[in-house]
Amino acid sequence: MENHPTPLLQIHNLLLYFRTTHGVVQAVDHVDIALDYHHAVVILGESGCGKSSLARAILRLLPRNVAEYKGEVILEGNDVMKYEEEEFRQSIRWVAMSLVPQAAMNSLNPVIKVGDQVAEPSMVHLGTSKAEALDQAKSMFERVSVPIDFLQRYPFELSGGMRQRVALAMALVTMPHLIILDEPTSALDLLTQANIFNTLKVIKHEMGISFILITHDIATSSELADEVAVMYAGQIVEASDAPHFFTEPLHPYSQMLMASVPRLRSDQDPIFIHGQPPSLISPPTGCRFAERCPKVFERCKQEPPVVQSNGILVKCWLYC
């Protein structure tokens, strides 16, 4: 493996706010993430915490109602936030990083053969010829374990799991360094899910691709994670490495979230977290989890700092 002087991706103070009729939604609020080459980071959070918006913010796939979008996204040493839209489209999106969107299996074009759809990104973004692109598509199909003769099929002729693999092949075909997976298996069956994670592990090890895995499913997140970032109400509350996180999470929210997972192989009683996450339109001052936190104390009324302990970043007054 080659040596890289800088990490693959560094995100500083990334911020993405949306305008709605009810007010400004602070979907992504000052997020910092770093990701090395050949690593996978899991962004873990419950629905409405802003994790999908984070994926959009990184790839600059923005809806029209953006109120504010700023921060630094340093990819391989370059701050791509400074790029013009056209430059970003040509040299970053799908070239340096690509996306497997949520419910990707339903995002394929129903009237185009899946082989052509997988070939498309390399023709559009890399300018390869059609024949070459189809060749690449073929080898990607092998990578993601889709039979080669499926190239000629239409999406409706494929099962959900196969379509999900096709969407993965589409993200892989341009050989980016980074793939963002947004809930890649949430609508799939258990065995299919396990199979796809097996495939992702192979791709990670053999092709050296890094992943950002966005999910709410704690159990399956551990299948791929080298690092874990927990998102709550638009903010990252804990960024840790997988061995620490899955054995000993630090932030009270991470701890409770972990304890809420029903486990097949232990008799530990799962717990639940009372209340609901705060509205992202007018989030509370101070710690956003304070209202639901069992360990809340006086200082939680102020915005907690991000504390580093043993390489783990946690946004909580308990560790100051």
Binding site: A40, S145, L190, L191, Q193, A194, N195, F197, N198, K201, I218, A219, T220, S221, S222, E223, L224, A225, D226, A242, P243, F245, F246, T247, M258, V261, R263, L264, R265, S266
Partner: peptide
């Protein structure tokens, strides 16, 4: 195929039928 949260998962393959 059912996993519990465990960091060892990332280094193992699941034995599931294709």
């Amino acid at each position: 195929a059912s996993s519990d949260p465990d960091y060892h998962n990332a280094t193992k393959f699941r034995e599931v039928p294709a």
